[in-house]
Amino acid sequence: MEIVRKWIQTIMALLVNGSWSFPFTRTIYQGPLKVVCSPGLNCYSCPASTTYCPIGSLQQLMAGIRIAIENGQNFFGLYVVGTMGVLGGVFGRLICGWACPFGLIQELLHKIPSRKFSIPQKLNYIKYGFLLFFVFLLPLTVVDKFGYGELWFCKYVCPAGTLEAGLPMLMLQPALGQTIGLVFFNKLAILVGFILWSILASRPFCRTTCPLGAFYALFKKLKLVKLRHIEENCTRCEACHSVCPMGVKFNESPENAECISCLKCMDKACKFDAITLEIAGLPMGSRAGARIHRPKQGEVSM
């Protein structure tokens, strides 16, 4: 299953970055596919990007809401939030585990041999602050004399934008090098920080900072596709704890907002059919070949 997931992650990364003419055009793809939402975090200023980034678009719409209203245009972000909501309602954070290019990059970085560290659970809440303030409130309320706000998350934080757009654009158009300043070096430092952190800890950006992950996490109880814990089969052996890339203790909190439905707990860890995939409440099956087991009182697996 893990190989299937890696393939799907790779295919999704190639689909949302499917324009490879940029070495000749020296700019980004500008075709009609850019009305399609990238399910994962993928900068639309990336030269290869064929879709729009919902977080970037949402900030653009929030930043320009005053000017749009003045011009009689009711652009409140309904199309973007609607698209994100449909994706969240169907998949939730399964998208983080299966369709996010930046998630894939972090997973590959984490394969580099080194001492590994956990991430304190309290840091998980920071991403909701980024979603609320950097994506909605600051672009909406802090405006210049023309009434236009800034894209706070893209401009000051997003390491995916630096990696996928900032650095490639500097290579494609070297003259842009004359315009870089403190903001760029700040973002470069954030990128380097997350690269190093990703080597030492699993998916640190997804867990602490990603506003798109925070948005999808809001659907933890409402999403169509989710993992279910079957109490009757669980031996509390805690095998599911050790394999989770997001630090979720699945048998203790099966509806944890951090679960990215990567299925490692179901496929690799649980030997007792205590974890199953469900769609709209209907079980779709669990680990292939798992032996049905009725644990006796006090029994744990090794």
Binding site: T27, I28, Y29, Q30, G31, K34, V35, C43, Y44, S45, Y52, G56, S57, Q59, Q60, E150, L151, C154, K155, Y156, G161, T162, A165, G166, M169, L170, L176, T179, I180, V183, F184, N186, K187, L188
Partner: peptide
């Protein structure tokens, strides 16, 4: 918005 390179948005 998506077909334009927003340089200030990517820190440049």
């Amino acid at each position: 918005q998506a077909v334009q390179v927003c340089l200030s948005c990517i820190g440049i």
